[in-house]
């Protein structure tokens, strides 16, 4: 017997699976970007929603993945497939190096430090370091994915690649939540002193969250660069980081449906209301305030208590 949530999830999966058949190319691109942004939001949620690290610079890791693919492909001629591994590993390495010295800082300091990293990252891109990043215009002419002579060039291919990527991300999120690592993050998030007293190393699990989150964001970045066949700094600036941050909190920290809803509200809705160009962000700001007042834990808050069924037998 399926419960309500699984049914909604299944319906959504079917809808998303057939979505490309019903829409024009502009909306197909919106759909693809929605999938990619969902993946980034999920990876932000590992750090922010699970480990509880106040992280407001996530677009940086997303951008690192995108620029890794772009640079290796355009400047060094690597095929896109070959850039996938480095576009995941390089953000992970940076997450370790950058977060290491600051991970012990209190929440709000981390918020500002991570914003700082993001701003530095953007300056590195804009100043065309080593002539690799292309300056404010970024890098154009990124190749498509080619495998066994097939060219995955159309937007429909892009959509399904992003769809598979989201599937992989969800698979990892589920595995994380059902492991010692995911649980340790929650314990730290809820009460650091109690968590330490149970033998949990705060530093290790916060860094773990950072590194895994950065890797997933990097993969999404690689996909993003291929979808648009170009990268430029403004797609990865602090404003984008704030968007990912807000997605998680508006949707519901550590809640899979919550983050999807958050991504829909923060990314797709503004696309829908494009004609109200001027007023839409005003309304948006008001909506952010109202959501937090009415639902401080997000629109679809996380539910705990997902334990093996044999332990639920005694429950009355």
């Amino acid at each position: 017997m399926m419960n309500k949530t699984s049914l909604i999830a299944l319906a959504l999966l079917v809808f998303m699976g057939f979505y490309p058949l019903f829409v024009d190319s502009a909306w197909l691109a919106v759909g693809t970007t929605f999938l990619v942004f969902s993946v980034v939001a999920f990876s932000q949620d590992i750090i922010l929603g699970r480990a509880g690290v106040f992280h407001m610079g996530h677009a940086m890791f997303f951008g690192m993945g995108a620029y890794t693919t772009a640079i290796l492909n355009v400047h060094f001629g690597w095929p896109i497939l070959a850039t996938w591994a480095p576009s995941v590993l390089i953000p992970m390495a940076f997450a370790f190096v950058l977060a290491g010295p600051i991970i012990h800082l209190r929440g709000d300091y981390l918020l500002v430090a991570t914003i700082g990293f993001n701003i530095i990252f953007i300056q590195v891109l804009e100043n065309d370091v080593f002539g690799l990043t292309g300056g404010p215009n970024g890098i154009f002419g990124i190749d498509i994915v080619r495998l066994f002579g097939i060219e995955f060039a159309s937007q429909t291919y892009m959509y399904y690649m992003a769809f598979i990527l989201l599937g992989i991300a969800l698979f990892i999120m589920r595995n994380l939540d059902k492991s010692k690592f995911g649980r340790a993050m929650f314990y730290i998030n809820k009460d650091e002193i109690a968590a330490q007293s149970m033998g949990i190393s705060i530093r290790y699990y916060k860094l773990y969250a950072f590194i895994v989150g950065a890797g997933i964001a990097g993969a999404a970045g690689s996909m993003f660069s291929v979808q648009y066949s170009a990268v430029s700094p403004e797609a990865f600036n602090v404003t984008q980081s704030i968007m990912f941050f807000t997605i998680v909190l508006v949707g519901g920290s550590a809640s899979l449906p919550g983050v999807l809803i958050g991504t829909f509200i923060m990314f797709v809705l503004p696309e829908v209301f494009r004609e109200f160009e001027t007023a839409r962000y005003l309304v948006f700001g008001l909506a952010m305030i109202l959501t937090m007042i009415l639902r401080p834990r997000g629109i679809w808050p996380v539910k705990f208590g997902d334990i093996p069924s044999y332990l639920k037998k005694g429950v009355k």
Partner: peptide
């Protein structure tokens, strides 16, 4: 988040 929203407004 409310503060960010207020800033946007």
């Amino acid at each position: 988040v409310s503060a960010l929203g207020a800033g946007l407004v």
